[in-house]
C-alpha cells in the first residue's frame, strides 16, 4: 500500500469525508410534516430518490412545533464534476498586485482612474464596499484609496441610486462600484437593475464601467443585471482594481485583431 494518500484527478471530483471518492455530505433541513415515522421516511426518500445521494442516514430528528420536523442526515454523493471544464468560462482578467496595477495604469492610461462606490438603496451593509475602497482595505491588502493611480470616493451605505449617479457625474467617475446583499429571494436585485437603468436613461452607459459585488454575485448574475463585472466573497481590492484598469485600457484602444487576447 502506498504511504501517500491518493489524490483526485480534477476531471472527476467528489466530496471527501475520510477517503477518496467516498462522496460524504452532511445535510440538515426541516420538513413541514409532523414528527414521526412518516416524516423520517419522507426525509430519507427525498435524499435517496430525489437529491441524487445514496445511503442516507438520519442522525438526528426533532419536532419543532406541530407540523414541522428538523433532520440532520449524512449521505453519499455519487456524482462528480469536471473542474477542467469549469475553468473554461472564468473571466480573462490577469491577476495583478497593487504595485502592478499602478504601474499598468501609469503606462497604459497615463491618468488616474476615478471610482465611486456605495452600498445602494436600502442596503445597510457597508463592509464590502469599505474593504474594497477604504485605505485600510482588508486582510493586509490596501483598498483603492491607497492606490497612487486611483481616486476613490466611498459614499457609504444606504445611498439612493440617484444620489450615487449625481455624484458620479460630479467627479467624472470612470467606474461605479456597488455592493449589495443579494439573498435567495432576490433581495436588492431591483436596486442593482435600477442603477443600470438610470445610467441608460441618462445616456451614459458607454462612459461608465459598472461593477457590483456581494455575497451571491457572480459574473453570470452581473451580466443579467447589466453590469460589466460581478465580484463575490474572496475578492481583494487588487482584483477589482486589476479588472477596472485592464477593462478601461482595453476600451480605450480596442485591439485590431478581435480574437487576440488584449494583454
Amino acid at each position: 500500500m502506498s504511504s501517500v494518500a491518493q489524490r483526485a484527478s480534477l476531471d472527476a471530483v467528489r466530496p471527501y469525508g475520510d477517503h477518496l471518492d467516498d462522496g460524504l455530505v452532511q445535510l440538515s433541513f426541516t420538513l413541514p410534516v409532523d414528527h414521526g415515522p412518516l416524516a423520517r421516511e419522507a426525509a430519507l426518500a427525498l435524499v435517496r430518490d430525489k437529491m441524487g445521494l445514496i445511503k442516507p442516514e438520519i442522525v438526528h430528528a426533532k419536532p419543532l412545533t406541530p407540523g414541522y420536523t428538523y433532520f440532520v442526515l449524512f449521505a453519499q454523493c455519487q456524482h462528480a464534476v469536471d473542474c477542467d471544464r469549469l475553468a473554461a468560462v472564468r473571466t480573462a482578467t490577469r491577476a495583478m498586485s497593487e504595485e502592478e496595477v499602478d504601474a499598468f495604469v501609469a503606462e497604459r492610461l497615463g491618468r488616474p482612474i476615478v471610482v465611486i462606490g456605495a452600498s445602494t438603496g436600502t442596503d445597510t451593509h457597508s463592509v464590502g464596499i469599505d474593504s474594497i475602497l477604504n485605505l485600510k482595505g482588508f486582510d493586509g491588502r490596501h483598498g483603492l484609496e491607497a492606490y497612487h493611480w486611483f481616486r476613490a470616493h466611498n459614499l457609504g451605505s444606504q445611498v439612493p441610486n440617484t444620489a450615487l449617479l449625481a455624484k458620479a457625474f460630479d467627479v467624472e467617475a470612470d467606474a461605479i462600484l456597488v455592493s449589495q446583499t443579494v439573498t435567495q429571494q432576490g433581495l436588492h436585485l431591483h436596486n442593482l437593475t435600477e442603477l443600470v437603468e438610470l445610467v441608460e436613461a441618462e445616456g451614459k452607459r458607454r462612459d461608465l464601467l459598472l461593477v457590483c459585488g456581494g455575497p451571491r454575485i457572480t459574473d453570470e448574475l452581473a451580466k443579467e443585471l447589466g453590469f460589466d463585472a460581478g465580484f463575490s466573497k474572496g475578492t481583494y481590492p487588487n482584483d477589482v482594481a486589476a479588472f477596472i484598469a485592464q477593462e478601461l485600457a482595453a476600451r480605450e484602444r480596442p485591439p485590431v485583431d478581435a480574437a487576440a487576447p488584449e494583454l
Binding site: T65, Q158, H188
Partner: peptide
C-alpha cells in the same frame, strides 16, 4: 409558525424583524 416553534423551544419574547429598510 416560526414564533410558535421558538416558544415551544423556550423563547420568552418574539420579535418580527421588519422588512428591509422599513425604517426609511
Amino acid at each position: 409558525d416560526h414564533a410558535l416553534a421558538v416558544a415551544e423551544a423556550g423563547g420568552d419574547i418574539i420579535a418580527v424583524i421588519r422588512s428591509t429598510a422599513q425604517s426609511l
